[in-house]
Design a protein around this nucleic acid. Sequence first.
DNA 1: CGTCGTGTTGAACGAAATCAACCATCGTGG
DNA 2: CCACGATGGTTGATTTCGTTCAACACGACG
Lengths: 255, 255
Amino acid sequence: MQVKAPIFAGQVRYPDDLPSCDQCPIRDRAICAHCEADDLTRLEATKYYRRCEAGQVIALMGEPMDFVASVVDGVASLTQTLEDGRTQMVGLLLPSDFLGRPGRDCAGYTVTAATSMQLCCFRRKPFEVMLACNPRLTTRLLEMTLDELDAAREWMLLLGRKTAREKIASFLVILARRGAAVNFARPGQSLSLSLPLTREAMADYLGLTLETVSRQISALRRDGVIRLSGNRDVDVPDYARLLAESGGDRDSARA
Amino acid sequence: MQVKAPIFAGQVRYPDDLPSCDQCPIRDRAICAHCEADDLTRLEATKYYRRCEAGQVIALMGEPMDFVASVVDGVASLTQTLEDGRTQMVGLLLPSDFLGRPGRDCAGYTVTAATSMQLCCFRRKPFEVMLACNPRLTTRLLEMTLDELDAAREWMLLLGRKTAREKIASFLVILARRGAAVNFARPGQSLSLSLPLTREAMADYLGLTLETVSRQISALRRDGVIRLSGNRDVDVPDYARLLAESGGDRDSARA
DNA sequence: CGTCGTGTTGAACGAAATCAACCATCGTGG
DNA sequence: CCACGATGGTTGATTTCGTTCAACACGACG
Protein backbone atom coordinates (compact mmCIF):
# COMPACT_ATOMS: atom_id res chain seq x y z
CA MET A 1 0.00 0.00 0.00
CA GLN A 2 1.40 3.33 -1.06
CA VAL A 3 1.74 5.87 1.68
CA LYS A 4 0.76 9.41 0.91
CA ALA A 5 1.45 12.37 3.07
CA PRO A 6 -1.76 13.45 4.79
CA ILE A 7 -2.80 17.03 4.64
CA PHE A 8 -2.19 18.29 8.15
CA ALA A 9 0.64 20.63 7.44
CA GLY A 10 3.43 20.60 9.96
CA GLN A 11 1.92 17.78 11.96
CA VAL A 12 3.05 14.92 9.83
CA ARG A 13 6.13 12.81 9.68
CA TYR A 14 6.88 10.13 7.18
CA PRO A 15 6.80 6.55 8.36
CA ASP A 16 10.55 6.30 8.79
CA ASP A 17 10.52 9.01 11.41
CA LEU A 18 7.59 7.62 13.36
CA PRO A 19 8.06 6.08 16.77
CA SER A 20 7.54 2.37 16.32
CA CYS A 21 4.46 0.68 17.72
CA ASP A 22 6.68 -1.53 19.85
CA GLN A 23 7.53 1.31 22.16
CA CYS A 24 4.10 2.86 22.08
CA PRO A 25 2.86 3.57 25.62
CA ILE A 26 -0.68 2.46 24.76
CA ARG A 27 0.28 -0.50 22.62
CA ASP A 28 -1.43 -3.08 24.83
CA ARG A 29 -4.64 -1.19 25.61
CA ALA A 30 -5.53 0.60 22.40
CA ILE A 31 -7.42 -0.53 19.32
CA CYS A 32 -4.27 -2.34 18.20
CA ALA A 33 -3.95 -4.38 21.40
CA HIS A 34 -4.71 -7.77 19.85
CA CYS A 35 -2.79 -7.14 16.66
CA GLU A 36 0.04 -9.40 15.69
CA ALA A 37 3.27 -8.57 13.93
CA ASP A 38 1.94 -8.40 10.40
CA ASP A 39 -1.24 -6.55 11.34
CA LEU A 40 0.94 -4.05 13.07
CA THR A 41 3.14 -3.60 10.07
CA ARG A 42 0.13 -2.73 8.01
CA LEU A 43 -1.18 -0.31 10.63
CA GLU A 44 2.24 1.22 11.02
CA ALA A 45 2.37 1.93 7.30
CA THR A 46 -0.70 4.16 7.41
CA LYS A 47 -0.56 5.75 10.80
CA TYR A 48 0.46 9.34 11.39
CA TYR A 49 0.77 11.37 14.55
CA ARG A 50 -0.97 14.60 15.27
CA ARG A 51 -0.38 16.98 18.15
CA CYS A 52 -3.19 19.07 19.57
CA GLU A 53 -2.94 21.93 22.00
CA ALA A 54 -5.30 22.42 24.92
CA GLY A 55 -8.52 24.03 23.80
CA GLN A 56 -8.13 23.06 20.18
CA VAL A 57 -11.25 21.73 18.50
CA ILE A 58 -10.39 18.41 16.88
CA ALA A 59 -13.73 17.74 15.26
CA LEU A 60 -16.97 19.64 14.99
CA MET A 61 -20.22 17.77 15.34
CA GLY A 62 -21.84 17.19 11.99
CA GLU A 63 -18.76 18.17 10.01
CA PRO A 64 -16.98 15.63 7.83
CA MET A 65 -14.28 13.69 9.62
CA ASP A 66 -11.89 11.71 7.53
CA PHE A 67 -9.83 9.98 10.19
CA VAL A 68 -10.06 7.89 13.30
CA ALA A 69 -7.45 7.88 16.05
CA SER A 70 -6.13 6.52 19.29
CA VAL A 71 -5.35 8.91 22.10
CA VAL A 72 -1.67 8.40 22.86
CA ASP A 73 -1.36 11.09 25.42
CA GLY A 74 -3.54 13.81 26.92
CA VAL A 75 -7.28 14.18 27.36
CA ALA A 76 -10.11 15.12 25.01
CA SER A 77 -13.81 15.64 25.56
CA LEU A 78 -16.86 14.77 23.48
CA THR A 79 -19.65 17.27 23.90
CA GLN A 80 -23.19 17.73 22.72
CA THR A 81 -25.15 20.96 22.86
CA LEU A 82 -28.74 22.15 22.72
CA GLU A 83 -29.58 25.08 20.45
CA ASP A 84 -29.73 27.47 23.37
CA GLY A 85 -26.16 26.68 24.30
CA ARG A 86 -26.59 24.26 27.19
CA THR A 87 -23.80 21.75 26.76
CA GLN A 88 -23.19 18.30 28.15
CA MET A 89 -19.99 16.34 27.94
CA VAL A 90 -20.83 12.82 26.80
CA GLY A 91 -17.40 11.27 26.62
CA LEU A 92 -13.96 11.75 28.10
CA LEU A 93 -11.13 10.34 26.01
CA LEU A 94 -8.07 9.31 27.98
CA PRO A 95 -4.88 7.67 26.67
CA SER A 96 -5.64 4.45 24.73
CA ASP A 97 -9.24 5.49 24.01
CA PHE A 98 -10.47 5.42 20.46
CA LEU A 99 -11.80 8.44 18.61
CA GLY A 100 -14.23 8.27 15.72
CA ARG A 101 -16.85 5.92 14.43
CA PRO A 102 -15.91 3.72 11.52
CA GLY A 103 -18.69 3.68 8.97
CA ARG A 104 -19.77 7.21 9.71
CA ASP A 105 -18.37 10.07 7.68
CA CYS A 106 -19.34 12.93 9.97
CA ALA A 107 -18.34 13.62 13.52
CA GLY A 108 -21.09 12.54 15.91
CA TYR A 109 -19.88 14.90 18.61
CA THR A 110 -17.71 17.92 19.04
CA VAL A 111 -14.27 16.79 20.12
CA THR A 112 -12.05 19.20 22.00
CA ALA A 113 -8.57 18.74 23.41
CA ALA A 114 -8.77 19.38 27.15
CA THR A 115 -5.03 19.23 27.56
CA SER A 116 -2.25 19.21 25.06
CA MET A 117 -2.36 15.78 23.45
CA GLN A 118 -0.93 13.35 20.96
CA LEU A 119 -3.11 11.36 18.57
CA CYS A 120 -2.22 8.30 16.54
CA CYS A 121 -4.39 8.74 13.46
CA PHE A 122 -5.53 6.56 10.59
CA ARG A 123 -7.36 7.83 7.59
CA ARG A 124 -10.88 6.55 7.79
CA LYS A 125 -11.32 4.71 4.50
CA PRO A 126 -8.18 2.58 4.70
CA PHE A 127 -8.93 1.90 8.34
CA GLU A 128 -12.40 0.67 7.47
CA VAL A 129 -10.92 -1.66 4.90
CA MET A 130 -8.54 -3.06 7.48
CA LEU A 131 -11.42 -3.47 9.93
CA ALA A 132 -13.37 -5.45 7.37
CA CYS A 133 -10.41 -7.74 6.72
CA ASN A 134 -9.10 -8.16 10.22
CA PRO A 135 -11.31 -9.82 12.83
CA ARG A 136 -8.82 -9.06 15.58
CA LEU A 137 -9.29 -5.37 14.96
CA THR A 138 -13.08 -5.68 14.84
CA THR A 139 -13.19 -7.73 18.00
CA ARG A 140 -11.01 -5.24 19.82
CA LEU A 141 -13.18 -2.34 18.69
CA LEU A 142 -16.24 -4.24 19.87
CA GLU A 143 -14.68 -4.83 23.29
CA MET A 144 -13.75 -1.19 23.60
CA THR A 145 -17.20 -0.04 22.51
CA LEU A 146 -18.87 -2.32 25.05
CA ASP A 147 -16.62 -0.91 27.75
CA GLU A 148 -17.51 2.59 26.71
CA LEU A 149 -21.16 1.71 26.83
CA ASP A 150 -20.74 0.46 30.39
CA ALA A 151 -18.92 3.65 31.29
CA ALA A 152 -21.67 5.73 29.68
CA ARG A 153 -24.28 3.93 31.75
CA GLU A 154 -22.35 4.45 34.94
CA TRP A 155 -22.28 8.08 33.97
CA MET A 156 -26.04 8.10 33.44
CA LEU A 157 -26.51 6.91 37.00
CA LEU A 158 -24.32 9.79 38.11
CA LEU A 159 -26.18 12.38 36.05
CA GLY A 160 -29.63 11.17 36.95
CA ARG A 161 -29.36 10.33 40.61
CA LYS A 162 -26.29 11.65 42.37
CA THR A 163 -26.00 14.85 44.39
CA ALA A 164 -23.50 17.54 43.42
CA ARG A 165 -21.10 16.42 46.12
CA GLU A 166 -21.34 12.79 45.05
CA LYS A 167 -20.77 13.81 41.46
CA ILE A 168 -17.51 15.54 42.28
CA ALA A 169 -16.32 12.64 44.41
CA SER A 170 -17.29 10.17 41.67
CA PHE A 171 -15.37 12.17 39.12
CA LEU A 172 -12.23 11.96 41.22
CA VAL A 173 -12.77 8.22 41.65
CA ILE A 174 -13.13 7.77 37.90
CA LEU A 175 -9.92 9.66 37.28
CA ALA A 176 -8.10 7.59 39.87
CA ARG A 177 -9.44 4.34 38.38
CA ARG A 178 -8.44 5.30 34.89
CA GLY A 179 -4.89 5.71 36.07
CA ALA A 180 -4.82 9.45 35.81
CA ALA A 181 -3.37 9.31 39.31
CA VAL A 182 0.13 10.65 39.67
CA ASN A 183 1.23 8.07 42.20
CA PHE A 184 -0.59 4.87 41.50
CA ALA A 185 -2.78 3.87 44.40
CA ARG A 186 -0.39 2.42 46.92
CA PRO A 187 -2.89 0.99 49.37
CA GLY A 188 -3.56 3.11 52.41
CA GLN A 189 -1.38 5.73 50.82
CA SER A 190 -2.26 9.25 49.93
CA LEU A 191 -3.20 9.48 46.27
CA SER A 192 -2.41 12.46 44.07
CA LEU A 193 -4.00 13.39 40.81
CA SER A 194 -4.03 16.26 38.44
CA LEU A 195 -7.39 17.45 37.15
CA PRO A 196 -7.32 17.46 33.35
CA LEU A 197 -10.34 19.75 33.12
CA THR A 198 -11.23 23.31 33.99
CA ARG A 199 -14.09 23.88 36.42
CA GLU A 200 -16.33 24.68 33.54
CA ALA A 201 -15.46 21.45 31.71
CA MET A 202 -16.05 19.52 34.92
CA ALA A 203 -19.44 21.18 35.17
CA ASP A 204 -20.25 20.10 31.62
CA TYR A 205 -19.15 16.61 32.49
CA LEU A 206 -21.22 16.39 35.63
CA GLY A 207 -24.34 18.23 34.59
CA LEU A 208 -23.73 21.10 37.01
CA THR A 209 -22.79 24.76 36.84
CA LEU A 210 -19.20 25.80 37.33
CA GLU A 211 -20.15 27.62 40.52
CA THR A 212 -21.56 24.46 42.03
CA VAL A 213 -18.43 22.54 41.06
CA SER A 214 -16.28 25.14 42.73
CA ARG A 215 -18.40 25.17 45.87
CA GLN A 216 -18.44 21.41 46.21
CA ILE A 217 -14.71 21.13 45.71
CA SER A 218 -14.27 23.72 48.42
CA ALA A 219 -16.64 21.77 50.66
CA LEU A 220 -14.73 18.53 50.15
CA ARG A 221 -11.55 20.40 50.97
CA ARG A 222 -13.05 21.92 54.13
CA ASP A 223 -14.22 18.48 55.20
CA GLY A 224 -10.77 17.01 54.72
CA VAL A 225 -11.74 14.59 51.97
CA ILE A 226 -9.25 16.18 49.59
CA ARG A 227 -6.43 18.67 49.72
CA LEU A 228 -5.58 21.14 46.99
CA SER A 229 -2.31 22.55 45.76
CA GLY A 230 -3.08 25.04 43.06
CA ASN A 231 -6.33 24.69 41.16
CA ARG A 232 -5.51 21.49 39.38
CA ASP A 233 -3.64 19.28 41.82
CA VAL A 234 -5.67 17.18 44.20
CA ASP A 235 -4.45 15.06 47.04
CA VAL A 236 -6.63 12.30 48.44
CA PRO A 237 -5.44 11.29 51.92
CA ASP A 238 -8.06 8.56 52.35
CA TYR A 239 -9.30 6.86 49.22
CA ALA A 240 -11.91 4.80 51.06
CA ARG A 241 -13.38 8.01 52.40
CA LEU A 242 -13.57 9.46 48.91
CA LEU A 243 -15.25 6.29 47.70
CA ALA A 244 -17.82 6.57 50.45
CA GLU A 245 -18.53 10.16 49.42
CA SER A 246 -19.06 9.07 45.82
CA GLY A 247 -22.38 7.42 46.63
CA GLY A 248 -21.16 3.96 45.80
CA ASP A 249 -21.68 2.54 42.39
CA ARG A 250 -21.38 -0.83 40.82
CA ASP A 251 -17.64 -1.04 41.01
CA SER A 252 -17.30 0.01 44.57
CA ALA A 253 -19.60 -2.87 45.43
CA ARG A 254 -17.43 -5.26 43.46
CA ALA A 255 -14.01 -4.06 44.50
CA MET B 1 -24.63 -29.44 16.86
CA GLN B 2 -26.79 -31.33 19.32
CA VAL B 3 -29.71 -29.40 20.71
CA LYS B 4 -30.47 -29.84 24.36
CA ALA B 5 -33.58 -28.63 26.03
CA PRO B 6 -32.79 -25.54 28.10
CA ILE B 7 -33.88 -25.42 31.68
CA PHE B 8 -36.70 -22.92 31.60
CA ALA B 9 -39.55 -25.25 32.32
CA GLY B 10 -42.67 -24.59 30.35
CA GLN B 11 -41.12 -21.86 28.28
CA VAL B 12 -39.35 -24.02 25.77
CA ARG B 13 -40.27 -25.59 22.51
CA TYR B 14 -38.12 -27.85 20.45
CA PRO B 15 -36.73 -26.49 17.21
CA ASP B 16 -39.38 -28.13 15.05
CA ASP B 17 -42.09 -26.15 16.79
CA LEU B 18 -40.28 -22.85 16.60
CA PRO B 19 -41.43 -20.08 14.33
CA SER B 20 -38.91 -19.89 11.54
CA CYS B 21 -36.54 -16.95 11.31
CA ASP B 22 -37.96 -16.12 7.88
CA GLN B 23 -41.18 -14.86 9.37
CA CYS B 24 -39.56 -13.24 12.38
CA PRO B 25 -40.78 -9.64 12.79
CA ILE B 26 -37.31 -8.42 13.77
CA ARG B 27 -35.38 -10.49 11.27
CA ASP B 28 -33.89 -7.52 9.44
CA ARG B 29 -33.05 -5.30 12.41
CA ALA B 30 -31.80 -7.71 15.08
CA ILE B 31 -28.40 -9.23 15.70
CA CYS B 32 -29.08 -11.69 12.89
CA ALA B 33 -29.79 -8.98 10.32
CA HIS B 34 -26.72 -9.60 8.14
CA CYS B 35 -26.85 -13.37 8.44
CA GLU B 36 -27.15 -15.48 5.36
CA ALA B 37 -29.00 -18.74 4.87
CA ASP B 38 -26.43 -21.05 6.43
CA ASP B 39 -25.65 -18.72 9.35
CA LEU B 40 -29.34 -18.62 10.01
CA THR B 41 -29.66 -22.38 9.99
CA ARG B 42 -27.00 -22.60 12.66
CA LEU B 43 -28.64 -19.89 14.77
CA GLU B 44 -32.02 -21.49 14.30
CA ALA B 45 -30.69 -24.75 15.67
CA THR B 46 -29.79 -23.24 19.01
CA LYS B 47 -32.37 -20.56 19.57
CA TYR B 48 -35.24 -20.90 21.96
CA TYR B 49 -38.07 -18.56 22.82
CA ARG B 50 -38.92 -17.31 26.25
CA ARG B 51 -42.00 -15.40 27.33
CA CYS B 52 -41.81 -12.89 30.17
CA GLU B 53 -44.68 -11.22 31.93
CA ALA B 54 -44.71 -7.54 32.85
CA GLY B 55 -42.78 -6.92 36.04
CA GLN B 56 -40.77 -10.11 35.81
CA VAL B 57 -37.07 -9.79 36.58
CA ILE B 58 -35.13 -11.32 33.71
CA ALA B 59 -31.66 -10.89 35.12
CA LEU B 60 -30.27 -9.57 38.37
CA MET B 61 -27.19 -7.39 38.28
CA GLY B 62 -24.13 -9.34 39.32
CA GLU B 63 -25.83 -12.72 39.08
CA PRO B 64 -24.68 -15.29 36.56
CA MET B 65 -26.39 -15.01 33.20
CA ASP B 66 -26.01 -17.90 30.80
CA PHE B 67 -27.82 -16.58 27.77
CA VAL B 68 -28.08 -13.64 25.43
CA ALA B 69 -31.22 -12.69 23.56
CA SER B 70 -32.99 -10.51 21.06
CA VAL B 71 -36.16 -8.76 22.08
CA VAL B 72 -38.82 -10.01 19.68
CA ASP B 73 -41.72 -8.24 21.25
CA GLY B 74 -42.37 -6.05 24.29
CA VAL B 75 -40.15 -3.74 26.32
CA ALA B 76 -37.54 -4.33 29.01
CA SER B 77 -35.50 -1.96 31.13
CA LEU B 78 -31.91 -2.04 32.33
CA THR B 79 -31.47 -0.42 35.71
CA GLN B 80 -28.67 0.40 38.08
CA THR B 81 -29.08 1.29 41.73
CA LEU B 82 -27.13 2.96 44.53
CA GLU B 83 -27.00 1.20 47.89
CA ASP B 84 -29.57 3.56 49.36
CA GLY B 85 -32.10 2.53 46.74
CA ARG B 86 -31.93 5.40 44.28
CA THR B 87 -32.33 3.80 40.89
CA GLN B 88 -31.63 4.95 37.37
CA MET B 89 -32.70 3.27 34.20
CA VAL B 90 -29.71 3.03 31.87
CA GLY B 91 -31.22 1.22 28.93
CA LEU B 92 -34.57 0.61 27.36
CA LEU B 93 -34.80 -2.54 25.24
CA LEU B 94 -37.34 -2.39 22.45
CA PRO B 95 -38.05 -5.01 19.80
CA SER B 96 -34.89 -6.00 17.87
CA ASP B 97 -32.58 -4.81 20.66
CA PHE B 98 -29.96 -7.17 21.98
CA LEU B 99 -29.73 -8.27 25.58
CA GLY B 100 -26.55 -9.45 27.27
CA ARG B 101 -22.86 -8.94 26.82
CA PRO B 102 -20.92 -11.72 25.13
CA GLY B 103 -17.73 -12.43 27.03
CA ARG B 104 -19.20 -11.51 30.37
CA ASP B 105 -20.69 -14.22 32.56
CA CYS B 106 -22.64 -12.02 34.96
CA ALA B 107 -25.43 -9.58 34.27
CA GLY B 108 -24.10 -6.03 34.17
CA TYR B 109 -27.51 -4.59 34.98
CA THR B 110 -30.82 -5.60 36.38
CA VAL B 111 -33.15 -6.41 33.51
CA THR B 112 -36.89 -6.18 34.05
CA ALA B 113 -39.75 -6.79 31.67
CA ALA B 114 -41.77 -3.57 31.49
CA THR B 115 -44.50 -5.18 29.44
CA SER B 116 -45.20 -8.75 28.62
CA MET B 117 -42.54 -9.78 26.13
CA GLN B 118 -41.04 -12.42 23.93
CA LEU B 119 -37.30 -13.12 23.84
CA CYS B 120 -35.33 -15.05 21.26
CA CYS B 121 -32.56 -16.57 23.37
CA PHE B 122 -29.22 -18.20 22.71
CA ARG B 123 -27.15 -19.88 25.33
CA ARG B 124 -24.10 -17.77 25.91
CA LYS B 125 -21.23 -20.15 25.29
CA PRO B 126 -22.40 -21.46 21.91
CA PHE B 127 -23.28 -17.93 20.90
CA GLU B 128 -19.79 -16.73 21.74
CA VAL B 129 -18.35 -19.49 19.62
CA MET B 130 -20.52 -18.44 16.71
CA LEU B 131 -19.50 -14.83 17.21
CA ALA B 132 -15.85 -15.79 17.06
CA CYS B 133 -16.40 -17.72 13.82
CA ASN B 134 -18.79 -15.41 12.07
CA PRO B 135 -17.64 -11.91 11.16
CA ARG B 136 -21.11 -10.96 9.98
CA LEU B 137 -22.42 -11.54 13.47
CA THR B 138 -19.56 -9.62 15.08
CA THR B 139 -19.93 -6.73 12.70
CA ARG B 140 -23.64 -6.53 13.36
CA LEU B 141 -23.11 -6.58 17.11
CA LEU B 142 -20.55 -3.81 16.73
CA GLU B 143 -22.99 -1.71 14.73
CA MET B 144 -25.71 -2.23 17.29
CA THR B 145 -23.39 -1.44 20.18
CA LEU B 146 -22.25 1.77 18.51
CA ASP B 147 -25.88 2.76 18.01
CA GLU B 148 -26.61 2.05 21.65
CA LEU B 149 -23.64 4.15 22.65
CA ASP B 150 -25.00 7.03 20.60
CA ALA B 151 -28.39 6.57 22.24
CA ALA B 152 -26.79 6.49 25.68
CA ARG B 153 -25.02 9.76 24.96
CA GLU B 154 -28.20 11.38 23.77
CA TRP B 155 -29.69 10.22 27.02
CA MET B 156 -26.81 11.76 28.98
CA LEU B 157 -27.61 15.12 27.42
CA LEU B 158 -31.20 14.66 28.53
CA LEU B 159 -30.24 13.69 32.09
CA GLY B 160 -27.64 16.37 32.54
CA ARG B 161 -29.17 19.39 30.90
CA LYS B 162 -32.87 19.15 30.13
CA THR B 163 -35.74 20.43 32.25
CA ALA B 164 -38.41 18.08 33.52
CA ARG B 165 -40.82 19.20 30.82
CA GLU B 166 -38.23 18.73 28.10
CA LYS B 167 -37.40 15.31 29.46
CA ILE B 168 -41.00 14.13 29.17
CA ALA B 169 -41.33 15.56 25.67
CA SER B 170 -38.02 13.96 24.67
CA PHE B 171 -39.17 10.63 25.99
CA LEU B 172 -42.26 10.76 23.82
CA VAL B 173 -40.13 11.70 20.83
CA ILE B 174 -37.83 8.76 21.46
CA LEU B 175 -40.77 6.39 21.61
CA ALA B 176 -42.19 7.80 18.41
CA ARG B 177 -38.82 7.50 16.65
CA ARG B 178 -38.33 3.95 17.74
CA GLY B 179 -41.59 3.04 16.12
CA ALA B 180 -43.50 2.49 19.29
CA ALA B 181 -46.14 4.69 17.70
CA VAL B 182 -49.46 3.04 17.04
CA ASN B 183 -50.13 4.82 13.79
CA PHE B 184 -46.88 5.42 12.07
CA ALA B 185 -46.20 9.12 11.64
CA ARG B 186 -48.34 10.11 8.72
CA PRO B 187 -47.02 13.62 8.18
CA GLY B 188 -49.15 16.37 9.63
CA GLN B 189 -51.27 13.67 11.13
CA SER B 190 -52.05 13.06 14.77
CA LEU B 191 -49.73 10.47 16.23
CA SER B 192 -50.79 7.95 18.85
CA LEU B 193 -48.58 5.98 21.11
CA SER B 194 -48.92 3.75 24.09
CA LEU B 195 -46.56 4.32 26.99
CA PRO B 196 -44.78 1.07 27.81
CA LEU B 197 -43.76 2.28 31.26
CA THR B 198 -45.43 3.19 34.53
CA ARG B 199 -44.94 6.72 35.87
CA GLU B 200 -42.38 5.36 38.28
CA ALA B 201 -40.41 3.63 35.52
CA MET B 202 -40.53 6.81 33.46
CA ALA B 203 -39.17 8.67 36.46
CA ASP B 204 -36.31 6.18 36.72
CA TYR B 205 -35.67 6.62 33.04
CA LEU B 206 -35.62 10.39 33.15
CA GLY B 207 -33.90 11.01 36.47
CA LEU B 208 -37.03 12.50 38.04
CA THR B 209 -39.52 11.56 40.73
CA LEU B 210 -42.81 10.01 39.77
CA GLU B 211 -44.66 13.05 41.06
CA THR B 212 -42.75 15.33 38.74
CA VAL B 213 -43.43 13.02 35.83
CA SER B 214 -47.13 13.08 36.60
CA ARG B 215 -47.19 16.85 36.96
CA GLN B 216 -45.34 17.48 33.71
CA ILE B 217 -47.56 15.10 31.79
CA SER B 218 -50.55 16.97 33.17
CA ALA B 219 -48.94 20.25 32.19
CA LEU B 220 -48.32 19.09 28.62
CA ARG B 221 -51.93 17.96 28.47
CA ARG B 222 -53.22 21.30 29.80
CA ASP B 223 -51.08 23.11 27.22
CA GLY B 224 -52.50 21.01 24.41
CA VAL B 225 -49.22 19.39 23.44
CA ILE B 226 -50.64 15.94 24.09
CA ARG B 227 -53.99 14.34 24.80
CA LEU B 228 -54.55 11.38 27.08
CA SER B 229 -56.98 8.51 26.94
CA GLY B 230 -56.45 6.42 30.01
CA ASN B 231 -53.08 6.54 31.71
CA ARG B 232 -51.09 4.89 29.00
CA ASP B 233 -52.42 6.14 25.70
CA VAL B 234 -51.06 9.39 24.39
CA ASP B 235 -52.15 11.32 21.38
CA VAL B 236 -49.86 13.90 19.79
CA PRO B 237 -51.84 16.27 17.60
CA ASP B 238 -48.78 18.23 16.47
CA TYR B 239 -45.51 16.38 16.32
CA ALA B 240 -43.50 19.48 15.43
CA ARG B 241 -44.82 21.15 18.57
CA LEU B 242 -43.74 18.18 20.66
CA LEU B 243 -40.33 18.27 19.06
CA ALA B 244 -40.01 21.94 19.93
CA GLU B 245 -40.91 21.15 23.54
CA SER B 246 -38.20 18.49 23.69
CA GLY B 247 -35.43 21.05 23.73
CA GLY B 248 -34.04 19.97 20.41
CA ASP B 249 -31.27 17.47 20.18
CA ARG B 250 -28.91 16.30 17.51
CA ASP B 251 -31.49 14.47 15.51
CA SER B 252 -34.04 17.22 15.44
CA ALA B 253 -31.35 19.39 13.91
CA ARG B 254 -30.64 16.76 11.27
CA ALA B 255 -34.15 15.71 10.47
C1' DC C 1 -0.32 48.58 34.58
C1' DG C 2 -4.67 47.05 32.79
C1' DT C 3 -6.96 43.14 30.98
C1' DC C 4 -8.30 38.49 30.25
C1' DG C 5 -8.99 33.83 31.71
C1' DT C 6 -9.97 31.05 35.55
C1' DG C 7 -11.62 30.32 40.00
C1' DT C 8 -14.03 31.45 44.55
C1' DT C 9 -17.67 33.10 47.33
C1' DG C 10 -22.12 35.42 48.67
C1' DA C 11 -27.22 36.38 48.30
C1' DA C 12 -31.56 35.56 46.17
C1' DC C 13 -34.30 32.69 43.48
C1' DG C 14 -36.59 28.76 41.45
C1' DA C 15 -37.34 24.00 39.74
C1' DA C 16 -37.84 19.76 41.34
C1' DA C 17 -37.94 16.86 45.55
C1' DT C 18 -40.35 15.62 49.54
C1' DC C 19 -44.23 14.82 52.37
C1' DA C 20 -48.96 13.96 52.31
C1' DA C 21 -53.72 13.45 50.97
C1' DC C 22 -56.67 11.62 47.82
C1' DC C 23 -58.76 9.13 43.55
C1' DA C 24 -59.62 5.22 40.19
C1' DT C 25 -59.27 0.62 38.82
C1' DC C 26 -58.94 -4.10 39.57
C1' DG C 27 -58.83 -8.60 41.53
C1' DT C 28 -60.08 -11.37 45.61
C1' DG C 29 -62.28 -13.57 49.19
C1' DG C 30 -65.98 -13.36 52.62
C1' DC D 1 -72.49 -8.95 45.59
C1' DC D 2 -69.73 -5.91 47.95
C1' DA D 3 -66.05 -4.64 51.12
C1' DC D 4 -61.20 -4.79 50.98
C1' DG D 5 -56.59 -3.91 49.95
C1' DA D 6 -53.22 -3.31 46.42
C1' DT D 7 -51.46 -0.87 42.63
C1' DG D 8 -50.89 3.10 39.93
C1' DG D 9 -51.84 7.85 39.33
C1' DT D 10 -52.92 12.90 40.48
C1' DT D 11 -52.56 17.02 43.02
C1' DG D 12 -51.34 20.30 46.87
C1' DA D 13 -48.08 22.45 50.41
C1' DT D 14 -43.56 22.95 51.77
C1' DT D 15 -38.63 22.47 51.58
C1' DT D 16 -34.20 21.99 49.59
C1' DC D 17 -30.55 21.80 46.52
C1' DG D 18 -28.55 23.73 42.83
C1' DT D 19 -28.87 27.75 39.76
C1' DT D 20 -28.46 32.49 38.75
C1' DC D 21 -26.68 36.93 39.30
C1' DA D 22 -23.00 39.43 41.06
C1' DA D 23 -18.75 40.79 43.20
C1' DC D 24 -14.15 39.81 43.86
C1' DA D 25 -9.31 37.30 43.83
C1' DC D 26 -5.33 35.74 41.46
C1' DG D 27 -1.88 34.93 37.98
C1' DA D 28 -0.32 35.38 33.14
C1' DC D 29 0.74 38.27 29.60
C1' DG D 30 1.04 42.09 26.34
